[in-house]
Design a protein around this nucleic acid. Structure first.
Lengths: 249, 249
DNA sequence: CGAGAGATTGACTAGCATCAAATGCTGTGG
DNA sequence: CCACAGCATTTGATGCTAGTCAATCTCTCG
């Protein structure tokens, strides 16, 4: 279903454009990052942990995730990524700290990290926006940290469902309360620090309590308020205040 | 003990200077952020969650933490902060997403966030360095996420001990394997998602296994390799590759 | 010396993991 | 079109890790 959308010249510009109105010159500068394209099949690994690489990627179509595998073989999913998201840590590390993997068929635009230099040199407001974008991610990570450290299995799953719906909607405004989550229960478990067995039981419980409905991979949020209360959830794309940004150049 | 160190004109410049050699102009630009100073007593709250505020802070002396309190009253500590660290999320949010609290007597330099504008406008390399600094934090958070989601209580505590020692040493190179951790067991628990009771048992176990020694608030890492193996720990201030940064201006 | 905070210890419980088996779903080849 | 393989989901039985509750001990500081 994601395959048929029209895709703009720069998904990243469109994403950042949700935060603040970009100038033509700024959009043009961002477009340069998406000159190349690469198709990925569902399950394909774009970059493996500890692999060298100084490319970054903009996700243009589909859904991806990043994860790490620990010594005992268990996996922790760190982030889910949607169209318009910037992927990769080549900005700072020689060797990738996390694996990037496609959850659906996907399209990414790879680019060398030194392509960012002209953005810092010529577009201070975009540079600031990159920092803002990173900070949103950082705060979203702290929310998940609090969820894993201090909330119940049910709360973590409720939070994940809310987060996924919001992120999907951000990338595609036609998304409603019902959506295909595109994750197995094992993946949900690896994101929330649970086993797939327990994920199953908690989903069932949420269903029995009337908070969600499910049918063949699709989930519908029936009672968003209860879910939010259950989950302690905050949408970190709201409540922003970017009044201080430098002027565009 | 932190009280007697000499403090340079800009702690933040000194911190970033560990990443890359700064020019005089760059250091001078950063010094402007630390014009004012404010003393904090141990336990003092600098900024409360959900409070409005468009100031950021540079920590100049002492140790601080950020945390959130969940609906059920439980606390999750998100980060520990040391001299030279930049605190606060006023960069992006109107209302603080986390509480900032002093763990020891401390000194901070508060500054208005729009003081960052000239840095973005005139010092592209510093702007890039801010992004790098943020990314290091983001990756460190993903490490903790993986620890909370997928590792045992003992491993989380081992990881915390290693992290604290490394961060302390970064701020003060005279720190060795023995150090005063300056945290109660309850605080260790709130950082690792455990109860103080269980923290106590795990510390004891690490001690019995000869990995650490303890006496009245001080900890000594006796067997760093075992700890690292136990903890799956990676020092995220190493392995950096900043070769792409814009030229200084 | 007394008060209060933190550390320690023991007994018991609960939430989630583990193990195992059954069921359902999808795509593929005959 | 069916049979089957392979994966995901579902369910039950049981175990273990870490939480809860509560008492005691220690240390510091007025």
């Amino acid at each position: 279903m994601l395959g048929e959308q029209s895709v703009s010249a720069s998904c990243f510009a469109e994403n950042l454009g949700h935060l603040i109105e970009l100038t033509g010159a700024e959009s043009a500068a961002l477009e340069k990052l998406e000159g190349r394209q690469r198709q990925l099949r569902r399950g394909a690994i774009l970059l493996r942990e500890k692999e060298r690489g100084n490319e970054l990627f903009i996700l243009r179509k589909g859904m991806m995730m990043s994860y790490v595998i620990l010594d005992d073989g268990s996996r922790q999913i760190l982030r889910f990524m949607f169209p318009g998201d910037l992927l990769g840590s080549a900005l700072i590390y020689r060797d990738a700290p996390e694996t990037l993997c496609a959850l659906s068929d996907a399209v990414v635009a790879p680019f060398e990290r030194n392509l960012l230099v002209p953005i810092f040199d010529e577009h201070p407001r975009l540079a600031a926006l990159l920092l803002v974008y990173n900070n949103i991610q950082r705060v979203a990570l702290t929310d998940r940290l609090a969820a894993l450290g201090r909330t119940s299995a049910k709360a973590r799953i409720a939070a994940l469902l809310l987060e996924l719906r919001n992120r999907l909607r951000r990338a595609d405004s036609s998304v409603t309360n019902g959506f295909a989550l595109g994750l197995t229960q094992e993946e949900i478990g690896d994101a929330t620090g649970l086993t797939s067995v327990h994920v199953n039981r908690m989903l069932r419980q949420l269903e029995q309590e009337g908070m969600i409905a499910r049918e063949s991979g699709r989930v519908t949020l029936l009672d968003e308020n209860s879910l939010r209360r259950e989950a302690n959830y905050v949408n970190r794309y709201e409540g922003l205040d970017l009044g201080w940004l430098p002027s565009p150049r």
